[in-house]
Design a protein around this nucleic acid. Structure first.
Length: 528
RNA sequence: GGCGCUAUCGUCUAGGGGUUAGGACGGGUGGUUCUCAGCCAUCAAACCGGGGUUCGAAUCCCCGUAGCGCUACCA
């Protein structure tokens, strides 16, 4: 039975690199009919657990990465919170000490550090002298009588090598002597990560440990612990890092400001921020970032697009397949095809996936994705009346592939506003209405045509405009750009005739009148 | 400092003793449209360096170099 796991710390946000690791674990479990376990690494019990965990679970749910055991899904191997498994760790520590694979040690951190520095100065590898090792009760009492605090250290072998097979990197060999006598239990009785991780993996019957490359060098000490406890070893697979955009450095959640200097990242972040602002959300910059899953959820990306992009970060099927449905990726996934070198996360490539996935949806589906954004912005009541829904679908259809993420609907907010509330892009207003001397006259003339136009459709408006420009002997561009600004407030947008048809005769006339009034001396040109 | 992992276009990658080194993103140019987006066509762009093995190396081996990781009473 294949059983894989992902063990996030409750940090308050789900990081894109972590999701990639979780995804590969999930895919591997699903591929082999196994189970995917979510285990919460909450040994630092400093913050409010629920508050710190919720965004992580929400992110996984949104992405469709479901867990078979973990928070909210009880199984035979719980509890799934490390903070509640202390008894198992203590048991393991005792067993290791009893078996002579670990020992109580009473050296102060300063004493150990001094040895470490001496070794470095001599350009030797550091090997602890075990000067304060206490392997008998008498020795323990003696050292404790000196007022020393004890920890438990691993008694690592000092000869030979640790060999294991990594499913991605092949045969590995590490000199045992390079390993430290790592502390597994602190003076206060709490246990450290490596011990807890090995114990939990065993008790949760994890068959494949699939994790990031940073743990490759940690594997020997974990194997030592597992063997000391008499556990069967899981299979290991060490994934390449997810690196920063445009670099080979490990992606870190701490360095948002640095990523924002990268042009591609900045662009995506800026786009997301504009959507958040249109929604009136005040987002904390440290979590509203393109390295955090929440960013994509809030700006209206499709989970399938994000998952697809993440899939290709360190894995490829062949020389051309890029688009995978969830089932296709489950069927195709294998550890053998995971690459060994770090992959840097490219938000522009994700954007391209998003664009493709969005365009593959029907108008009704895209409208469904977009509607919550208009509601959140206060532009559409919830539930929306039938007429508003028709307008929404018409806008979505006309906008076509201009709506890449669902939040892009807010670019078309003007269609959902009162005429009197329509904001103008001042530069466009200046260029298309104020500066061309004939603009006001042409617009006024065409307004009267529209006022009597029947029926009022995209085709009839186009016909009317063609007739009008022919009569006046002007080019179509002399009217159309001015009209666009008058109707939508913007200099760019989708087809103008479609825009007019969506607004309808009354609103078109009203918006033209408002723009014309604004053109007159003293006509609301303040701030221009 | 020690130990380890890694190295193909700017980015993600395919290939893996003989290839015009393939695809995608991004970029350039031309076309189409009322603007924008798109779409179509087209172009540029890579095997880290040095040695070896071999008839032949980007591919195998060694050495460098670089990046990253581990070297914590962090995870």
């Amino acid at each position: 039975m294949v059983r894989t796991r992902f063990a996030p710390s409750p940090t308050g946000y789900l990081h894109i690199g972590g999701v990639r690791t979780a995804l590969f674990n999930w895919l591997f479990a699903r591929r082999h009919g196994g189970r995917f376990i979510l285990r919460i690494d909450d040994t630092d019990q400093e913050r409010n657990l629920d508050e710190a965990l919720e965004p992580i679970l929400r992110g996984f749910r949104w992405l469709g990465i479901d867990w078979d055991e973990g928070p909210g899904v009880e199984g035979a191997h719980g509890p799934y919170f490390q903070s509640r498994r202390g008894n198992l760790y203590q048991e393991a520590v005792d067993k290791l000490v009893e078996a002579g694979q670990a020992y109580h040690d009473y050296a102060t951190p300063e004493e150990v550090q001094a040895e470490r520095e001496a070794a470095q100065a001599a350009k030797r590898r550091f090997v602890y002298s075990r000067r304060c090792m206490a392997d008998t009760p008498e020795r323990r009492r003696e050292l404790e009588a000196q007022g020393r605090q004890g920890v438990v250290r691993l008694k690592m072998p000092r000869d030979g090598a640790c060999r294991f097979t990594d499913a991605i990197r092949g045969e590995m060999a590490f000199e045992w002597a390079a390993e430290q006598d790592h502390v597994i239990q602190r003076a206060d009785g709490s246990c450290l990560y490596h011990l807890a991780s090995v114990v939990d993996d065993h008790h949760m019957a994890i068959s494949h440990v699939i994790r990031a490359e940073e743990h490759l060098s940690n594997t020997p000490r974990q194997i030592f612990i597992a063997r000391g406890l008499g556990y069967d070893l899981p299979a290991y697979a060490h994934l390449p890092f997810v690196a920063e955009p445009g670099s080979r450095t490990k992606l870190s959640k701490r360095k948002l400001d640095k990523y924002l200097k990268h042009a591609d990242f900045a662009r995506v972040a800026e786009h997301g921020r504009a959507i958040a602002e249109a929604l009136g959300l005040s987002m904390a910059p440290e979590t509203f970032s393109p390295v955090v899953v929440d960013f994509y959820q809030r700006t209206g990306y499709l989970p399938d697009a994000l998952v697809n992009a993440l899939l290709l970060l360190g894995w490829a099927l062949d020389d051309r397949t890029e688009i995978f449905t969830r089932q296709e990726m489950i069927d195709a996934f294998s550890l053998e095809r995971v690459s060994k070198s770090p992959a840097s996360f490219d938000p522009r490539k994700l954007w391209a996936f998003q664009s493709r996935y969005m365009q593959a949806l029907s108008v009704a589906e895209r409208a469904n994705h977009a509607r919550p954004f208009l509601e959140a912005a206060g532009l559409l009541p919830s539930p929306a009346p039938a007429e508003a829904r028709r307008t929404l679908e018409a806008v979505v259809e006309a906008a076509g592939d201009r709506i890449v993420v669902a939040g892009d609907i807010l670019e078309y907010a003007g269609f959902f506003m009162e005429d009197a509330a329509l904001p103008y892009d001042e530069k466009a207003f200046e260029k298309r209405l104020r500066r061309p001397p004939e603009a006001a006259d042409l617009l006024a003339g065409f307004r009267d045509r529209l006022a009597g136009l029947e029926p009022f459709t995209a085709a009839s408006v186009e016909e009317a405009l063609n007739a009008f420009t022919a009569e006046r002997g002007v080019k179509i561009g002399q009217v159309i750009h001015a009209l666009r600004v008058a109707l939508t407030g913007k200099g760019v947008g989708f087809g103008l005739f479609e825009a007019a048809a969506i607004l309808g005769r009354g609103r078109c006339v009203s918006r033209i009148d408002r723009a014309l009034a604004r053109l007159e001396p003293g006509g609301g040109s303040a701030g221009a």
